[in-house]
């Protein structure tokens, strides 16, 4: 296994599917003839307990995989909805240790409200915490792994080693602008799945999901990606059904944040049920 660059790692396709792995949930959805539903909330939003409760309710309403955001002061990949939620969380005093506590609470929730948890974090907080220490503490909290929106495999030597050592999934992003060579090196560096950004832009609900997404999923698979989930712009059941027809997972963020902000947990549950109905039977 490589400890230097993503392009030479051999761990990419030899997925370790532990019980906590999100890949397990994605495979289970696929076996049931559908795409998996991956849902994002920033940890500590609207507050620490409220976030955990909202995500447990979302799992009960049909969410397959939890993407728990680690709020960061300078989120360059996020649009206004998630920026505002992250600011709320930080103003509320959310620290990295609180995010890890939330992971632990989510992964020890009762059956029916429990799903694999991936943390999504910009690189600055992980680097400051210590890459090895973060991997160790995330694994011991029961976390499945980490999504890194501003870390490309080229810069990820330390993280590749730490995630190997602690059997964590690592999800890197590909974009419509990625070259075939980068699709291949990124797919090889991922463990669990690859995050395909549907469009060139930041997070946020859009009227239509980028037309490039389907081609990007196909190109990623051709480049060796084992599982490909699509994010950016999905907010409705119809869009989820459309994306779920070709992707292994459908990732929804801003629409969940907005529903929770505006209508609380009941509103969030309604949106999750709509999205879950969208993916149901999507790949039958």
């Amino acid at each position: 296994m490589s400890t230097t660059t993503g392009t030479t790692t051999t761990a990419g396709t030899a997925t370790t599917t532990t019980g906590r792995a999100s890949a397990t949930a994605i495979d289970a959805a696929r076996a049931a003839g559908r795409s998996a539903l991956v849902g994002y909330l920033p940890a500590g939003f609207p507050d620490r307990a409220g976030c955990v409760d909202a995500l447990r309710a979302s799992v009960a309403a049909g969410l397959d995989v939890i993407e728990l955001g680690l709020p960061y002061s300078d989120p360059v990949m996020d649009g206004p909805v998630i920026q505002a939620a992250a600011e709320t969380s930080l103003r509320g005093g959310t620290r990295i240790r609180h995010v890890l506590e939330s992971v632990e609470q989510l992964t020890s929730a009762p059956d029916g409200e429990r799903a694999p948890v991936l943390v999504m974090s910009y690189w600055a907080p992980v680097l400051r915490y210590g890459v090895e220490a973060f991997a160790r503490d995330l694994a011991s909290a029961g976390g499945a792994g980490l999504i890194t929106p501003d870390l490309v495999p080229d810069e990820a030597g330390e993280w590749l080693a730490a995630s190997d050592a602690h059997h964590l999934e690592r999800v890197f992003l590909v974009a419509p602008s990625s070259t075939p060579a980068r699709l291949a090196s990124t797919a090889a560096a991922c463990r669990g799945w690859t995050y395909a950004a549907s469009t060139m832009g930041v997070t946020g609900a859009r009227a239509s999901v980028g037309a490039a997404a389907e081609g990007l999923v196909a190109a990623s698979r051709a480049a060796g990606a084992e599982r490909v989930c699509v994010g950016l712009g999905v907010s409705t059941g119809e869009q989820a059904a459309e994306v779920g027809a070709y992707a292994d997972g459908v990732i929804v963020g801003s629409a969940l944040v907005r529903a929770l902000s505006e209508e609380g947990v009941p509103g969030l549950e309604r949106v999750v049920r709509d999205l879950a109905a969208g993916v149901a039977g999507s790949r039958a």
Partner: peptide
């Protein structure tokens, strides 16, 4: 130094 940016910017 380095490049700690989203993949979407790497091509540019």
């Amino acid at each position: 130094g380095g490049r700690f940016v989203p993949e979407a910017l790497i091509a540019a």
